[in-house]
């Protein structure tokens, strides 16, 4: 095990299957995420990475398979699922900020409407979260007034405000102009350093290499290979993995 990683399993995913229109998209995915671990998922486009993340917090209901969060099974019943989703922060590729709310409002709304925190307390906490992503100055701006990088940082703050047990990032920098990617990766890196448990889908190989405790290579709805970054990059088991890494590194750089 790597340094700084607790042994406690925060999230366990077992044999997840999902079909869309009769076509198998996920064909049995299993893995465990330990406390403080950063797991990076890579793989070709259309392979089911987004579907997998959505299955984990049940935005998409898997056809088969089980998920445990801190030992408790995540079951899709109306009441339960909202409890579980609060504990899993999700960051989307295209931000999905609430357009009618300010940055502060975006971070606050989960606290006031879901956690039923009182207004002042929620405001305090929301401001704290915005500070953590370096956006307290922008608290009163609306999404349309923010840059892409700022939007994504607000959406990270929005997820963090709920005090999640695990964060799910779905290609958080893919919709950003190259010069804005760095500020978002910086925030994610800090989270990793502070010991947040995370699953991150990304094409940023250099970043994956530096923050990941383990990289999972997904292809065609299955995990083809997984392991610590040095192993996947230097000594991959499969030719497919090697080719994908080579291609993606050429496309996106280190």
């Amino acid at each position: 095990m790597q340094k700084g990683i607790d042994k406690v399993v925060v999230l366990e995913v077992e044999d997840i299957h999902k079909k869309y229109r009769g076509q198998d998209i996920l064909k049995g995915i299993s893995f465990k995420v330990r406390k403080g671990e950063t797991k990076v998922i890579i793989g070709p486009s259309g392979t089911g990475k987004s579907t997998l993340l959505r299955c984990i917090n049940q935005l998409t209901i898997p056809d088969k398979g089980r998920i445990w969060l801190e030992g408790e099974e995540v079951i899709h019943t109306k009441k339960n699922i909202n409890q579980f989703r609060q504990k899993m922060g999700m960051v989307f590729q295209d931000f999905n900020l609430f357009d009618h709310l300010t940055a502060l409002g975006n971070v606050e709304i989960g606290l006031t409407r879901v956690k039923r925190m009182d207004k002042d307390e929620a405001r305090q906490k929301a401001i704290e979260e915005l500070k953590k992503v370096g956006l307290e100055e922008q608290a009163n701006l609306y999404p349309a007034q923010l840059s892409g990088g700022q939007k994504q940082r607000v959406s990270i703050a929005r997820a963090l405000a709920m005090d999640p047990k695990v964060m799910l990032f779905d290609e958080p920098t893919s919709a950003l102009d190259p010069e804005l990617i760095g500020e978002v990766l910086e925030v994610i890196k800090n989270l990793a350093i502070q010991g947040m448990t995370m699953i991150l889908v990304t094409h940023e190989m250099g970043f994956a290499r530096s923050v990941a405790n383990e990289i999972i290579f997904m292809e065609d709805g299955k995990i083809l290979e997984s392991g610590p970054p040095y192993q996947l990059f230097n000594n991959p088991k499969y030719e497919r993995t090697k080719r994908f890494l080579k291609k993606i590194t050429e496309l996106y750089g280190e």
Binding site: K78, R85, F92, D94, F95, F98, D99, V114, R158
Partner: peptide
């Protein structure tokens, strides 16, 4: 669809 997804991901009904 993203607005609904984001809201549900926070735990809203």
């Amino acid at each position: 669809e993203g607005q609904m997804l984001a809201a549900r991901s926070l735990g809203m009904s």
